Computed example of a mutant assay.
Amino acid sequence: MGSKEGIPPPPPDWPQQADEDYERIRVLGAGAFGQVLLAKRRPQNSHSAEKYVAIKGVSILTEHEGATAEREIAILSELSHPNIIKLLDAYEPASNTAKGRYIVMSYINGPDLGELLEARGALGLPLAQLIARHLISAVAYLHARGVIHRDIKPDNIMLEGCKEGKKWISDDLMWNSSKTSSKAVEQGRFKAVLCDFGFARAILFKQHERNQSRVNLRMSAVGTKFFAAPELVENVCNKDEPDEALTQCVSNYGLIGDAYSVGATLSEIITGVPPGKDPVAYVESNRKTTQKSSSRFSKLCHILSGGYKGPYDIQLRTHEELPKPVTNLISSLMEPDPSSRLSVREAQDHEWIGGYDALEHGDVDARRGGECVPLQNIAAFK
């Protein structure tokens, strides 16, 4: 398993079969088990039709991590939706003593929404509306399969279409609400993809619950505090110290909890205001000064603009500055009372989203009121 010039050497436990199926190109980042690599499918590989893939390592140092990794693989292996990351293959490490798995995912050539928000703040309304449609369609599909994502936030949503060839497009198309931006969206330039299913969980419905969206069950509560539904945060148990992550909690959690996270995500990408902040106070305070760039901020601006020309003003909006349908959708998804909250499958029919028939679809019917088609792999429920 040697390495050609310019190609990164394989990790110590890199599977031989992975080298036979894919050609390593470069390192994309660091994962829990090692590097995340960009790779190219070899002509003889019949497992995948995608030319480029991302291969990441998943740590399995404990029994809990092992169950989590198997669950992520089991869930993703049965999902098929254009706005959900695809699992293409999985390999055992080369060494029998290694603790992990290598997972081959579809490669998304673009930044995550968290990076875009940090770079320039609130996205343009045409792009934000498209992202809302893609995200709601993806999560409605998950719920139709009985899957709860449990960690929906901007960092876990990638955006394709930010490049023309090898060059980044004008940032105006992403942060502007002009006719040019609207045209780019209408022409299908962009696509949002929901990623990171490490915390996802499949649930089993009773027969009479198959068409419901408010099923709750007791399970480990995970995710990020300010994107989590209030009933999750308020009912957590066995948490030693409060912090932004909710990775060691137990709570009553269900499909309707994901709806709150979708609303919180949409609120941030449309207003630029992080969840947990008072929107009016935050906008008034931060509009007065030009924010300083962080290293992550300046790097992304350098990529997008072909050279860092900031610091840029961060684009911010209050809810009062948004069209009423937008604020109605966000407030309905973020309703504190879960029994009154708009479900994600219901949100497909909201006037700002356009109805089920106007959205991207997966391999099962995810329209409002439809029955759940549960996953078959028992590992998805562990």
Rank of each mutant, 00 (worst) to 15 (best):
K288T: 01
V27H: 06
E268H: 13
P336A: 01
A281L: 14
P11R: 07
L37A: 08
I73D: 00
T271M: 06
A32I: 01
D243L: 00
C372E: 10
E72R: 07
Q212P: 00
I169V: 14
M174N: 08
P275H: 12
R42L: 15
C162V: 15
T318L: 04
V283P: 01
V215W: 02
N216H: 09
M105W: 05
E320G: 05
K86V: 02
P82N: 09
V280K: 08
T180Q: 10
A259H: 05
D172R: 15
V27T: 15
N238E: 10
R218M: 11
P323V: 02
G66T: 14
R296Q: 11
N235P: 00
H149I: 00
L88D: 02
Q35R: 15
Y253C: 11
K324Y: 07
S267G: 11
E335I: 02
I169P: 03
A18G: 13
R341K: 03
L61S: 12
A358Q: 13
P111W: 08
S77K: 15
L342R: 06
C249E: 10
G355D: 10
A119W: 13
N377Y: 03
I75S: 13
D13Q: 10
W14G: 02
N377M: 05
S3A: 15
S181E: 06
I25K: 08
A184F: 08
N45E: 06
E321T: 02
S137D: 05
I256C: 12
L116Y: 05
K324F: 10
S293Q: 11
E335Y: 06
A119E: 13
N156G: 10
V280N: 01
I85K: 09
E321Q: 13
Q16I: 13
P275I: 11
N83M: 01
A184W: 08
I84V: 14
P338G: 01
H361K: 15
V147E: 12
I7P: 00
E164W: 04
S48D: 04
M219I: 06
N328A: 12
T271H: 09
R210D: 01
Y22F: 15
D365W: 02
W168G: 01
W168R: 06
D89S: 13
K225E: 12
D349M: 07
I131Q: 03
V273P: 03
F190V: 04
V364A: 11
I314W: 10
E360I: 08
H361M: 08
V36F: 05
E63Q: 14
F381V: 04
F227E: 01
G66M: 09
N252Q: 09
E284A: 11
Q291W: 04
L375V: 09
N235C: 02
L359T: 08
A200K: 02
P93W: 03
V104I: 07
E72W: 10
K153M: 09
G276F: 13
A281Q: 12
D196E: 06
H149W: 00
N235D: 09
E234Y: 07
